[in-house]
Design a protein around this nucleic acid. Structure first.
Length: 476
RNA sequence: GCCGGUGUAGCUCAGUUGGCGAGAGCGCCUGACUGUGGAUCAGGAGGUCUCCGGUUCAAAUCCGGACACCGGUACCA
């Protein structure tokens, strides 16, 4: 016995088999369609970047251990990208002659060396779109509208895009007399509101608590007056975005800088109203904080109302400071990112994706080696008529095995052609699904064989037309 | 990182208080049925029982350790 290698994949990595790839490609194509309609352009950047590009020059000690590091022959310090935003900032800084605004999309895998969890992997794909170099809130509006259009195009069922703003949260800090440093912790905790509920958020903002597993969760150590003010802020909830804006103005009256931040959010909301994005699609939800530190303005995320357990499937915000790392100059930018894997998992869960198993619509079976020329001819005839067709190339001889093969791959139509058909100048078409349905009702094999469900004989020279007709019928 | 759980066939799992040649279902292969998927029936292939050490006449089973995976929780630029 020769030594063999055990086939396996490293932790947190997985293979995407055909059924999943087909669903994913459909999803990506659909999203791409929306963003090209909006006039975004594609780019791709290398998976591998210099470590200092990924980390930032100053951030030696920052908590960025989840980068996979990579060795090259020159022994340079390299790593796999962990998102698509940092490489975008690099591109903006590196290609100074790119016209701005630069509005691009990118769909690519990213890597994080975290502990994998349910629906969470070390290699996963993001679909990002960003507008770089636009100060106007119309860019933010465009991203939010695009999120709505994308989710509608994907037929995800009811969804909600929720947005807020870091500017408003900063006003909250001023209102509650908190420092910017405390702010980072506060935002992180607020982001968990949906998941853990208001009591635990209060505990985590003050003293901390011990969770069900006995793991102590440290508190942020805020005073109860500060937490009271935060809670008053969080109580502003309404489906009506205008109502939220009004209450916010009321609460933050006299807080320095607050009015300007509220005005930005109000403008976005009004643009969206005038475009027909009402409360059923977009809500102004002040509990949205987003975990990332680099956001500077509006932030947004989308959830599926029929699958809320999948969390945010699409999120983003404005980050006016990120390009500064490379250019030393402030370049405004706003964008959003779709977690392709998470959204796809949600769609499969909802039964809205993942049904297609094959690209071929027709399998030409191969029963008689003497007729090889006919099989090849029929195959290319169909292909040249733009009908995706596979010629059976395996070793099984009888039609039984070959039909089983068609069944296993979910090919909707099989073509049977042997000496009988050749003599009569016909081909036999078989609608696989019709047979599948019929099989449920039949217990006895003689009946099953005798009936030959879903089969039709058509003239050999009418093959293409007959297949097309049968496909139309199946797809209707 | 912390807490808990689980490692037995390709997959899902059963294996009683340790007891001779290690099981089931699904899947796969062959045949009944040499030109028809499903169903049924018969047969077949497929296992270092995660690994290392210990206890014992005897370990998949008990003990210790390692590793891996799963779930929860924390962190997440």
């Amino acid at each position: 016995m020769a030594d063999t290698v055990e086939p396996r994949t490293s932790r947190g990595l997985r293979d995407l088999l055909p059924a999943e790839m087909l669903a994913r490609q459909w999803m990506i194509d659909t999203i791409r369609g929306v963003y090209e309609l909006y006039g975004f352009v594609p780019i791709v950047t290398p998976a591998i970047e210099y470590l200092d590009v990924l980390r930032g020059s100053s951030a030696g000690s920052e908590a960025q251990q989840s980068i996979f590091t990579v060795r090259n022959p020159e022994k340079e310090e390299l790593g796999l990208r962990f998102d698509l935003t940092v490489p975008l900032a690099r591109v903006i800084a590196q290609y100074r002659d790119l016209p701005r605004p630069f509005r691009r999309y990118q769909v690519s895998p990213v890597w994080r060396a975290d502990k994998p969890g349910p629906g969470r992997f070390r290699e996963f794909t993001q679909f990002d779109l960003d507008s770089v170099g636009v100060e106007s809130e119309i860019a933010d509006t465009e991203i939010i509208a695009g999120m709505c259009d994308t989710l509608r195009a994907l037929r995800v069922g009811p969804f909600r895009v929720r947005f807020s703003s870091r500017g408003i949260l900063n006003s909250l800090l001023a209102y509650a007399s908190l420092s910017a440093e405390q702010g980072a912790d506060v935002f992180r905790v607020l982001d968990k509101l949906d998941k853990v509920g208001p009591e635990k958020v209060r505990l985590e903002l003050t003293t901390g608590y011990v969770d069900a597993s006995g793991d102590p969760i440290p508190g942020v150590g805020l005073s109860s007056e500060a937490v009271d003010k935060i809670e008053r802020f969080l109580q502003i909830r309404s489906d009506d975005r205008r109502e939220v804006v009004a209450q916010l103005r009321d609460l933050f009256a006299g807080v320095e800088g607050a009015e300007a931040e509220i005005a930005v959010v109000e403008k976005i909301s009004n643009h969206l109203y005038s475009l027909g994005y009402g409360e059923d699609q977009v809500s102004l939800d002040l509990s949205i904080a987003r975990g990332l530190a680099y956001y500077t303005g509006p932030v947004f995320e989308a959830i599926l109302l029929d699958a809320p357990q999948f969390g945010s499937v699409f999120g983003g915000g404005r980050y006016d400071g990120l390009v500064m790392r490379f250019l030393g100059e402030k370049v405004p930018a706003v964008g959003a990112s779709i977690g392709v894997d998470r959204l796809l998992a949600a769609l499969v869960h909802l039964g809205k994706a993942g049904h297609q198993k094959s690209t071929a619509k027709v399998l030409i079976t191969n029963m008689d080696p003497a007729l090889a020329d006919d099989y090849v001819a029929m195959t290319w005839e169909l292909r040249r008529a733009e009908i995706p067709t596979e010629l059976y190339l395996g070793t099984a001889r009888g039609p039984g095995k070959q039909l089983k093969y068609a069944d296993a791959w979910g090919v909707p139509i099989a073509v049977l052609y042997g000496s009988n058909e050749k003599e009569k100048g016909i081909v036999t078409l078989k609608d696989m699904d019709a047979g599948r349905q019929r099989a449920k009702a039949l217990a006895n094999r003689q009946e099953w064989l005798g009936e030959r469900p879903g089969q039709r004989e058509v003239p050999r020279d009418g093959l293409v037309a007959a297949v097309r007709e049968m496909l139309d019928q199946i797809e209707a």
